[in-house]
Design a protein around this nucleic acid. Structure first.
Length: 452
RNA sequence: GUGGGUGUAGCUCAAUUGGUGGAGCACCUGGUUGUGGUCCAGGCGGAUGCGGGUUCGAGUCCCGUCACUCACCCCA
């Protein structure tokens, strides 16, 4: 093969889109650290038995193997991590002696899953997680906190509105048991397909696969239909007349989360009693996030409360966390043309080169500009100025700098307006908005903005 | 992992019943003797994803494979 091709599920961006990606990563880190989450990174591999415990055998994990391993050598027992929560739980237990609790950390890393790729689903992708773990106990208010930190990230990014949907495992399980379900997880799986299959198909599933009576299925569907941005969902659940201690507990917790979130960031968090997703280690609050107008890509950010994930047998470290699917979000933002970078390179200025003999002069100008924090590159060749200008224009570099002839002042040209004027490298500054590439929303109602 | 659709130039697409692969955009050169985008003229550009098969002859038919994509599964 003469030209290498892409690898399914292992996406790569061109420079302009990478600028968008880095903007998202920078924003995520800035907001996380603004809230005091410390950064950690864990190794890419975990022991398989650690990752796959709790009977989750259907996880598609990539296993590590030495190329020259003899055929009869047992595998390494190591696999690439498929999320950041399980490695984090291991990390907490391993380093518990050196950590202060409650421990709040953020972690932005690649993860790998051996699934069949689709839009927004990759085999290698980046997640950005925040988690807070306590020793023995973890205050409830952190369940509100992590969701609102993510909401703040969404607000800081040029993206469609994101809705953090929240539910509670205890509420769901208590309700399902209250109507006589023997296999609450099966009920959850069926209810979760409500959006996709519709109520009548889900009612069939509930009876066929979860073993519910017709009446019980109907009440589960009624529960799944409940949704509110305030605490009015509590009365709606009560009106269904189901009784169970777990239900009471879950309902109270969800009410507290929604009330607190609504008070601090109205509209950011919505109680939605049909969401069920997340891994099976969640024990209470669960989150899932939809991009309004792009619900078809699924959740871009999810997580929840886990009481028993991290434990060394004697001490348990309950936690709550939420994970942003950076790659999935970017897949939508970039793939659907919702955002773009204002240019494809960091350079704000291209310094033209009059002739190779005077290249040093251009380099000097560039050095002065860079010292003042203005990203600058020097033209690669002393081609005709028309070519050098085009070099800049193609890349979206807004300014071209022309060193003056001996004794003459320099000048700088704004490629968008075409205006050119005298300038001194020691004092000239671009408009703040031009200094670095910006990531902006593309408004589909206005045509692509021209360069002039 | 299961099933369906697709795969022609950098991009978007053509190619009559299998009969020597074209166009637009982009790119390069010149008009424009150093200041881009418009216009005009000219030019470069492909072993039709890859491998095999059927045929006198395959972009076109068959098989395999890889990739993209949709649904399922699962989930960020």
């Amino acid at each position: 093969m003469s030209r290498p091709g892409p690898l399914s599920g292992f996406p790569e961006f061109l420079p302009a889109d990478r600028i968008v990606e880095q903007h998202v990563l920078d924003t995520v880190r800035r907001v996380f650290e603004l809230h005091g989450f410390a950064s950690i990174e864990t190794r890419a591999v975990e022991p398989l038995e650690q990752m796959l415990r709790k009977g989750e055998i259907d996880k598609e994990v990539y296993v590590l193997r030495r190329l020259h391993a003899p055929a009869d050598e047992p595998d390494s027992g190591l696999g690439l991590h498929f999320d950041l929560t399980v490695p984090f739980a291991r990390y907490v237990v391993q380093h518990a002696g050196q950590l202060e609790f409650p421990f709040r950390r953020h972690q932005v890393q690649k993860v790998w899953r051996g699934e069949r790729p689709q839009e927004g689903r990759y085999r290698e992708f980046t997640q950005a997680d925040i988690d807070i773990v306590g020793r023995d106990t973890l205050a409830f208010h952190h369940e509100v906190e992590v969701a609102l930190v993510m909401a703040e990230v969404f607000r800081a990014l040029p993206m469609p509105r994101a809705e953090i949907l929240v539910n509670n495992r205890k509420l769901a399980e208590g309700f399902f048991r209250g109507v006589g379900a023997e296999d609450p997880p099966a009920v959850l799986r069926a209810v979760d397909k409500l959006d996709k299959l519709g109520p009548s198909r889900v009612a069939e599933l509930l009876q066929a696969e979860a073993g519910l009576s017709a009446g019980a299925a109907e009440r589960c569907l009624a529960l799944a239909g409940i949704r509110s941005a305030d605490t009015s969902f509590v009365a709606a659940v009560r009106a269904l007349g189901v009784e169970h201690p777990l239900l009471d507990e879950g309902l109270a917790e969800l009410e507290a989360v929604v009330a607190a979130a609504a008070a601090r960031m109205p509209g950011a968090v919505v109680a939605d009693l049909k969401i069920a997703r997340g891994l099976d280690y969640y024990t209470g609050t669960v989150y899932e996030t939809r991009l309004v107008g792009h619900e078809d890509v699924g959740s871009i950010c999810s997580g929840g409360r886990y009481d028993a994930l991290a434990t060394d047998g004697r001490t348990t470290y309950p936690g709550v966390g939420i994970s942003l699917g950076v790659s999935r979000l970017l897949g939508v933002l970039v793939g659907r043309g919702l955002v773009r970078a204002t240019r494809s390179v960091p350079s704000c200025v291209l310094v033209a080169v009059t002739d190779e003999a005077s290249r040093e002069r251009s380099e000097h100008v560039a050095g002065v500009l860079r010292a003042r924090g203005i990203p600058t590159e020097v033209a690669p060749s002393a081609a005709k100025f028309g070519k050098q200008i085009r070099h800049a224009d193609r890349r979206g570099i807004p300014f071209v700098w022309f060193p003056g002839a001996a004794g003459e002042p320099d000048s700088v040209k704004d490629l968008r307006s075409g205006e050119q004027g005298q300038a001194d490298a020691g004092t000239w500054s671009p408009p703040e908005a031009d200094r670095h590439p910006r990531v902006v929303r593309v408004d589909p109602t206005t045509p692509e903005e021209g360069t002039r």
